[in-house]
Amino acid sequence: MKRYFEFSDSKSHKFWQIAVDGSNCTVSYGKIGTAGQEKVSSYDSPERALKEAEKLIGEKTRKGYVEKESASEKKHARRIVVSYDEAEAGKTLLEKVQAFVDSPQAAEVSALVIGAWETPYEQDPQAGLDYLCEHSARLPNLKELFVGDMDSEECEISWIIQGDYTRLFAAFPQLERLHIKGSTGLVLSQQPLEHAHLKALTIECGGLPQSIIQTITGARLPNLEFLNLYLGVEDYGFNAALEDLQPFMDGTLFPRLKYLALADSELADQIAEAIAEAPVLDSIETLDLSKGTLSDKGAEALLASSKIRRLQRLDLHYHYLSNEMMARLKKELDLVLDVSEQQAPDEDEDEDCCWRYPAVTE
């Protein structure tokens, strides 16, 4: 027996393979396109080896791994970044993008990552984005784009000045994955957003504007499978209300959606209460309410829901749950559950209250 699985989201592209030969079980795993690593386990009988293999397969499928007949092709990826020293010397993102697009290798690249540009806290990457759109014919295989891949030392997430992506969707009709980091100045589309092939959309930020949320809830993305939105806080750009998030819960927006993340939110309890019996839970496999201010109040609503139990995975990591609530969730929910990174609220004795904060703001 030999079976092969792959997992892909906006950040990871991994394979996992299992083979049983007699009493031996061999597991191989790693990044797609690499040889990966291998682990061999021996059991006291072929029947036990098969039983353990099926158990491992169940664990992987619950985590989102999908079985395939054969391995996907190796990705050709490229990362463009303007280092601090290069920026000091006058180098620009536009120059680097031009050099890449004009190179013979550009036609082979399927995944492009844009890291820091010269002064991301003062200017946007628009010139580089526009050049990509204007010369999209030279990038016929581009299926994945990540703009803003930088750490806090390069630029705090809420300081990143983003650009206007309106032209991108028409310029790259074959695009499957888009990951944007930073929301200051971000325009996802100035017209109704439509894209036939986009499968994954991630916007990672300290505060997601209402205008971006409304663009997405008004979009036509028939093949979207993975949606990961960092909502953030008002101080860094979040100006929406719970009702603006309701369309994500109705289950009619994206017919193929399997992974929904309404993460990094100070409205985590309200979102949990609203989504607990929402129609979208009838079709998705993973609900991600991680990195927010979820407390026992929101978790109670999740536990009371019959729909939550239909999920394969519930991600609540980085939370403000009590030890008792964590134990209840683990005991009562038969799914893959992440309740790691328990937080303690800040107590303010003067105001006689406690403060809870999402994981990502500035």
Rank of each mutant, 00 (worst) to 15 (best):
L221S: 02
P279S: 12
T286K: 09
M1Q: 09
D296G: 12
D315E: 09
E243P: 06
T286A: 09
A19N: 12
R78T: 05
I32E: 09
E88T: 14
L50H: 08
I203H: 00
R167H: 11
Q343E: 11
E144Y: 04
L257Y: 11
A137R: 15
V40N: 11
L262K: 11
L242Q: 00
D346V: 13
Y4D: 02
G237N: 02
D346L: 07
M326Q: 14
P125Q: 10
A106T: 11
D346R: 11
G30Y: 07
E176R: 06
G185S: 06
L201A: 08
C205K: 07
D130Q: 10
G237Y: 00
Q343P: 05
I80M: 04
Q246C: 08
K331W: 02
Q105T: 07
A111R: 15
L253M: 11
L224K: 10
Q246G: 02
L329N: 02
Q174T: 05
K75G: 14
A304P: 04
Y131E: 02
R356F: 09
K2F: 09
S41L: 12
L145C: 03
D338P: 00
G115P: 11
S8W: 14
I180C: 08
G22W: 08
R138G: 10
W159D: 15
D124H: 10
V20F: 02
I18D: 01
S295D: 12
A263E: 08
S28H: 06
N323V: 08
V280A: 06
R356A: 07
H319A: 08
N141Y: 10
K68V: 15
F172V: 03
A274R: 13
F254D: 03
N223G: 08
F7G: 12
L267F: 01
K39A: 14
K31N: 12
R79A: 10
K60I: 01
S110C: 11
D264G: 05
L139V: 06
F254W: 01
V97H: 04
A274I: 10
Q214Y: 01
L50V: 04
L139N: 04
E69A: 13
D250A: 13
P209A: 04
L289C: 03
E204Y: 09
I271R: 06
Y121D: 15
A170H: 06
E153V: 13
S45L: 04
S41W: 07
Y165F: 13
T361S: 06
R256S: 14
T252E: 07
E341V: 00
L198T: 12
E176T: 10
H76S: 14
K31T: 11
